[in-house]
Computed example of a mutant assay.
Amino acid sequence: MHKPSYCYFIMLIFLVLGVTACSLSDINTYNNEKTATAKVKQESMGYYPDKRTDKVKNIVSADPKPLQEEDFEISYQLHKIDKKTDIKELIYKWGYGEGYDSSNRGYISGNGTYRRWNLSYPNYENPEIRFVVLSKIELEGEELVDGESYLVAVSLENSKLKTKRGLKIGDTLGKVLQLYGQPSIITNGSLLYSKNGLHLRILWDTKSEKVNNISIEYNMEKSIKQQRSADYVDEDAQPDPDLEPFTIQEGQSFTTILSGWGKVRFVSTLKDEEKNNLIQAKFFLEVNNQKYVDNKILYEFPEFYGNNGRMIDKIKAVSFKDLNQDGRTDIVIIADYITGVNAHGIETLPVTGIYFQKKDNTYITLPELVKNINQTGHNRTLQNVIQYVGKQRIDVN
């Protein structure tokens, strides 16, 4: 009978250990992937447990260190740029940049008291970097000159320059998330990271999914308050001061006839994201008669259900219909809200809100009904909502 040699036993031990190690590695990899997948799925699926599973693989799992003020610094030609940067010192070192005079002295906008302008280096035609500046206009003899000036923002214009964490133009959206994590504010094509009044704004191309601009805002809010200029008012913007913080969504604003109101304009708006932590939806009725233009706002609707701790991406659909057969006009609204961002862009889910008209022609919401509509997934289309509500017994008197 053949007796196995010591070499045979040694080889057998190595083989067993190798298989065991591979098996443990596979198990750990599977468990880690399973845990990460479950976490991402839980965070992104919202009301639909199986809706987002196909995108799980595209989510970038990153846990970068929290933002610090130093993350909003950059370096250009060995010079540190931050919120305390002295504009006159930059001009002393580098001049005004080639093409300054032919580019209308870098003019962006002005109002007689302040002028907003930019310094572009090394030139204005093909810059590497732009500095946005706000200057107080002063009279020196008979000539208007820039007086007290400060840095508003800086924009990186090509891939030669990087942020403090190494991000540059041309990098992927996935790399943004790996370096900075989830942003403070997400819109389609824009990510915003904020800390103590400093803002890192990253613009990306929604087709190529790559960064095409990086800007850092140091004193943007201050500059907007100081410069009250017609350059910042859209010609078609709502003139009523009550709507100043909101942007009208023209595609979802309609002239219609409502019971008890007659011919009015229903106005959908989103609150300006630069002035608020969350983008929120708000709805109004306006007089549809130029004779009464001085009193345009007739009615402000109650809080939209979709605002509840969410960031609204857009108003998706509006319907005017008598939902409970009481002879009055109810209003259904569907919006998209942002659930997160992955390597391919923002992720959204629909959310519905309903306004029921009362006998006195004002409107109320029924939170429990709307909550059920959203939780059961009957909020994807106007038809879904209308069919669901039609089966309920609703009395708002």
Rank of each mutant, 00 (worst) to 15 (best):
I279C: 10
I279S: 13
Q280P: 00
Q280I: 08
K282L: 02
K282E: 10
K282A: 10
F283L: 07
F284G: 02
L285F: 04
L285W: 00
E286G: 03
E286N: 11
V287H: 14
N289M: 11
Q290F: 05
K291F: 13
Y292P: 02
V293N: 05
D294V: 03
D294R: 14
N295K: 14
K296M: 08
I297R: 04
I297Q: 07
L298N: 03
E303C: 01
E303Q: 11
G306Y: 10
G309V: 07
G309L: 10
R310I: 04
I312Q: 11
D313Y: 12
D313F: 11
I315W: 03
I315Y: 08
I315N: 09
A317L: 03
V318R: 03
S319W: 00
D322V: 08
N324H: 05
Q325F: 12
D326R: 12
D326V: 05
G327F: 11
G327A: 11
G327N: 10
R328P: 00
R328V: 08
T329N: 11
T329K: 12
T329C: 07
T329D: 15
D330W: 01
D330V: 08
D330N: 05
I331C: 02
I333T: 08
I334H: 01
I334G: 00
A335T: 14
A335N: 10
D336Y: 06
D336A: 10
I338F: 05
I338S: 03
T339S: 06
T339V: 11
G340V: 02
G340E: 00
G340F: 06
H344V: 12
G345A: 15
G345N: 13
G345L: 14
G345R: 12
T348E: 07
T348P: 00
T348D: 00
L349H: 06
P350F: 04
V351G: 01
T352G: 00
Y355S: 02
Q357Y: 07
Q357D: 06
Q357E: 10
K358A: 12
K358M: 12
N361P: 00
T362G: 08
Y363V: 04
L366M: 13
L366Y: 10
P367T: 04
V370A: 07
V370Y: 00
V370D: 00
V370T: 15
N372Q: 15
I373W: 05
